[in-house]
Simulated assay, not measured.
Amino acid sequence: MKAKKKIYLTCEDYTVSNKKFNLLYNSTYEMLETFPKPLGKELASYYESENYISHTDSKNSFIDKVYQIVKKIALRNKLKLINSFKTNQKTILDIGCGTGDFLLTCKKNEWKVYGVEPNSKAKELAEKKLCLNNSVGLYAKLEDIKFEKFDVITLWHVLEHVPNLEAYLIKIKAMLKPNGVLMVAVPNFKSYDAFYYKHFWAAFDVPRHLWHFSKTAIQKLFLKQEMSVVNILPMKFDSFYVSLLSEKYKTGKSNFIKAFYVGLLSNLKALKTKEYSSLIYIIKKT
């Protein structure tokens, strides 16, 4: 992905290090890239925080409680979505499965579930929830899964974390059945809440988020792999949660009313623009 890049924004890591990172605009793909990109053990160190809630089941703070409420609603919606696709064996791979709640929901609804989670603490929590047996497989990395192809592969807010993006897409495509469905959910930096909060926008989440996508970027990236985006769905609750975090980064306070207003305004504007805070892409092989 060679293209002339200029600095779009400079953002701060508010979760772990308070270091600053540039977001470079890639005009070829209409996406942003975090620079510099930490790799390996350095990248892993940016996830070592109790504040990184997707790797914990924390319910301590007000924002934690909001996250858990939204997660329950999202789990029901995700299950309804995957059940809408006709599959033969009901096999699903959730990449970046975190503490395993989505896989547990699928397992309870007669899906044969597999998950990938590189964070050891999150993976341990997932293993306890899922009670590993023949209908469950959990792995630390994608390469550990051998000779399996899946009806459904999901990446819920995961693709933005992947260092070697193009190579990863090639691997995922190879693991999808010919008529399988890939679901990718990512933040949308062209949403109104991103525009409003700018470098305070929590969904930039540097440097854990290495890439920042637009609809054009997702379509071009998968088209290169001979895969097509067949539908795009909004994640309407994300604007509220992201705005709540963004207010805290911007002002030092949660400012619930202001965050709710910005989140609502973002969704209202997106009724016309379709640029919601986060989007789910339904992708199939061409």
Score class of each variant (00 low, 15 high):
residue 250 K to R: 15
residue 146 K to D: 13
residue 155 L to N: 09
residue 91 T to N: 09
residue 153 I to C: 01
residue 7 I to F: 14
residue 285 K to D: 02
residue 129 K to A: 00
residue 136 V to N: 07
residue 80 K to T: 11
residue 59 K to W: 12
residue 151 D to K: 00
residue 198 K to G: 10
residue 32 L to P: 02
residue 224 K to A: 08
residue 160 E to A: 05
residue 41 K to W: 15
residue 162 V to I: 15
residue 130 L to A: 02
residue 196 Y to I: 01
residue 90 K to T: 10
residue 39 L to H: 11
residue 113 V to M: 14
residue 72 K to W: 12
residue 156 W to C: 03
residue 133 N to I: 03
residue 71 K to V: 06
residue 151 D to N: 03
residue 136 V to S: 07
residue 127 E to M: 13
residue 161 H to Y: 13
residue 25 Y to N: 03
residue 31 M to L: 15
residue 46 Y to G: 08
residue 251 T to Q: 06
residue 57 D to G: 05
residue 113 V to H: 09
residue 234 P to I: 14
residue 179 N to F: 00
residue 90 K to R: 12
residue 276 Y to T: 11
residue 58 S to L: 10
residue 193 D to G: 06
residue 128 K to D: 12
residue 128 K to L: 07
residue 44 A to H: 11
residue 186 V to F: 13
residue 61 S to C: 03
residue 9 L to P: 00
residue 94 D to G: 09
residue 70 V to W: 08
residue 18 N to D: 09
residue 53 I to R: 09
residue 36 P to A: 10
residue 248 K to C: 01
residue 92 I to Y: 01
residue 219 Q to T: 05
residue 284 K to S: 08
residue 185 A to D: 10
residue 221 L to T: 03
residue 243 S to V: 03
residue 173 K to V: 05
residue 243 S to Q: 07
residue 185 A to W: 08
residue 37 K to I: 15
residue 133 N to V: 06
residue 122 A to C: 15
residue 218 I to A: 00
residue 197 Y to K: 11
residue 158 V to H: 07
residue 102 F to D: 07
residue 246 S to D: 12
residue 222 F to C: 04
residue 12 E to M: 10
residue 225 Q to C: 15
residue 34 T to A: 12
residue 84 S to K: 03
residue 79 L to Q: 09
residue 108 K to P: 02
residue 103 L to S: 03
residue 243 S to K: 15
residue 204 F to A: 00
residue 155 L to V: 10
residue 166 E to R: 01
residue 95 I to E: 00
residue 190 K to R: 15
residue 164 N to K: 14
residue 55 H to W: 01
residue 144 D to E: 15
residue 134 N to S: 15
residue 209 H to Q: 05
residue 100 G to N: 09
residue 136 V to I: 06
residue 82 I to A: 06
residue 217 A to H: 02
residue 59 K to T: 14
residue 206 V to T: 11
residue 127 E to D: 08
residue 2 K to R: 12
residue 134 N to E: 14
residue 75 L to G: 04
residue 153 I to M: 05
residue 11 C to R: 00
residue 254 S to D: 09
residue 64 D to Q: 09
residue 222 F to D: 09
residue 73 I to W: 01
residue 31 M to S: 06
residue 244 L to Y: 00
residue 197 Y to I: 08
residue 275 E to F: 06
residue 174 A to D: 14
residue 164 N to P: 11
residue 89 Q to A: 12
residue 222 F to L: 04
residue 212 H to M: 06
residue 185 A to E: 03
residue 79 L to R: 11
residue 253 K to E: 13
residue 172 I to E: 08
residue 231 N to Y: 01
residue 195 F to L: 13
residue 68 Q to P: 01
residue 251 T to W: 02
residue 202 A to Q: 01
residue 261 Y to E: 07
residue 185 A to Q: 04
residue 51 N to H: 13
residue 105 T to Q: 11
residue 85 F to M: 04
residue 239 S to W: 14
residue 68 Q to T: 06
residue 79 L to F: 00
residue 188 N to M: 04
residue 58 S to H: 07
residue 260 F to A: 11
residue 262 V to G: 08
residue 137 G to I: 00
residue 171 K to T: 04
residue 220 K to S: 03
residue 60 N to S: 10
residue 152 V to K: 05
residue 168 Y to W: 09
residue 249 Y to P: 02
residue 63 I to F: 02
